[in-house]
């Protein structure tokens, strides 16, 4: 299975996924109540410590995609006359992203699926079947790398035959092949009685 699970310390992995997620939710709510660059800076330092101790320096890469956005927020607040607010905002976002990434990096996808299934339990109690949702998630996980491979194969075929660049024109046959696969998968599900009530 694919996932963002990375090298992480045993103690962080040993905490049950549900506990980590609940803690993350609580901390996220708490961070939006904190104000000012000093408490939020302290929170950032603490999360940095947890993240590096738990998952190593590789986790800091999770901050890279949002670096420009953070810089923009800082400068925009600064230009509008409140550097301290800008600093607080950047600390808050960076803390949240670091902690959330640490939870993801230290939790197996299968454990996350189990939590997801438990979160859907209230729907089951009122009689909504939740099995299709779980099956759809697992199928999407399986199909995503398959479709990416398919695209690579199709664009290789394009490049072997054309000097022009691969463009959006390839999306239509790609889409059609995916939809045909969906029909095949639907037949397979039906043949196996995936949604028969037990």
């Amino acid at each position: 299975m694919i996932g963002v699970t990375a090298e992480s310390a045993r103690w962080l992995r040993a905490i049950p996924a549900g506990v980590k997620l609940a803690a993350l939710a609580a901390i996220s709510a708490g961070l939006f109540m904190l104000d000012g660059p000093i408490p939020l800076g302290a929170a950032f330092a603490a999360s940095l410590l947890v993240a590096v101790a738990g998952c190593g320096f590789a986790l800091l890469r999770s901050l890279r995609p949002i670096a420009w956005m953070l810089l923009f927020a800082l400068v925009a607040h600064g230009v509008l006359g409140d550097w301290m607010l800008g600093l607080a905002v950047v600390f808050r976002i960076a803390t949240l992203v670091l902690l959330a990434s640490a939870v993801s990096a230290s939790t197996e996808l299968s454990d996350m699926l189990a939590v997801f299934d438990r979160l859907l339990a209230p729907l089951r109690w009122v009689g909504v079947p939740t099995r299709p949702a779980g099956i759809a998630c697992v199928m999407a996980l399986r199909f995503a790398p398959m479709l990416t491979q398919r695209w690579t194969a199709m664009s290789d075929a394009w490049r072997a035959r054309s000097s022009r660049r691969v463009g959006w024109r390839l999306v239509t046959p790609f889409l059609l092949s995916a939809l045909d696969d969906a029909d095949g998968a639907a037949n397979a599900l039906a043949a196996r009685g995936a949604f028969r009530r037990r």
């Binding site: 299709p132 099956i135 759809a136 998630c137 199928m139 999407a140 996980l141 399986r142 199909f143 995503a144 398959m146 479709l147 889409l175 995916a178 939809l179 696969d181 969906a182 029909d183 998968a185 639907a186 599900l189 995936a194 949604f195």
Partner: peptide, 11 residues
């Protein structure tokens, strides 16, 4: 429905 939904999520 499930198959198309899953396929489109993957797409």
């Amino acid at each position: 429905t499930v198959a198309r939904v899953a396929l489109f999520a993957a797409l």
